[in-house]
Design a protein around this nucleic acid. Structure first.
Length: 218
DNA sequence: AACCAGGAGACAT
DNA sequence: ATGTCTCATGGT
């Protein structure tokens, strides 16, 4: 099975996911940090609190007291850690001149800059690049590694960058890579959430027995 | 009632 | 380079 064939199977079964589930680009970036090792339903509560407190801009977040910010983030878990991470991201974001300035930078330098922000690792940076800046970057997460390892496309011991490059190379000639990577990552996540944790596999799993996750792969 | 979720950083080996 | 610990709430 090729990487594109896998995408087609998932898309045929689940349909378009229209990610990222957020209204503004800034909300995407905040959500990318808040969803680190956390269920999205918990992130939604935190974002709702931020909206109620009018804290959905970098300026407003930096002007707010750290404990007020942390209280808003409480339902998303790790709230003290994430409050500091959101804050450091906002400082960087404003220092760089905001989205209007950042959008003119090339993808490699933008990615390096994001990785330099405390609390922004590889996946969070790629979420932001793909879903806020519309750059053709494949977002790799735990679901991606588990699924691809189970399908025999990976052995499961590859590092983040290796997996990302493998996917980007395999799909390099496809048209509209931003839209493709957007859907692909969303589909992998939705698939991982809905299926294939049960053994034997769910009757309606689009990948059937190929989809038995290897739980040892993280 | 344990287990886990759309990770990242600090620290030891 | 690679492994282990911590951070924390809410759903199953």
């Amino acid at each position: 099975m090729t990487y594109y064939a896998l995408y087609q199977k998932l898309f045929a079964h689940y349909g378009p996911q229209h990610w990222w589930p957020a209204k503004s680009r800034f909300e995407v970036m905040v959500g990318a940090v808040l969803t680190q090792n956390t269920a999205w339903s918990n992130v939604e509560r935190a974002i709702a609190h931020l909206k109620r407190a009018r804290l959905l801009s970098a300026q407003a977040i930096l002007a707010a007291s750290p404990d007020v910010l942390a209280e808003c983030l409480r339902p998303s878990g790790y709230f003290n850690v994430k409050a500091a991470r959101i804050r450091s991201f906002c400082e960087w974001f404003l220092a760089q001149g905001g989205y209007r300035r950042l959008r003119h930078r090339d993808t490699p330098s933008l990615r390096q800059a994001l990785l330099g922000v405390h609390g922004v690792g590889a996946e969070t940076a790629d979420d932001i690049l793909l879903y806020a800046f519309n750059r053709p970057v494949f977002v790799v997460d735990a679901y991606t590694k588990r699924l691809l390892a189970r399908l025999g496309l990976l052995n499961g011991s590859e590092g983040y960058e290796t997996v990302r490059h493998t996917l980007e190379r395999a799909l390099a000639r496809r048209p509209d890579r931003v839209a493709l990577f957007n859907e692909y990552h969303a589909l992998v996540v939705i698939h991982g959430k809905n299926h294939c944790r049960a053994r034997p596999v769910c009757a309606d799993c689009p990948l059937q027995k190929e989809c038995l996750f290897d739980d040892s792969v993280r």
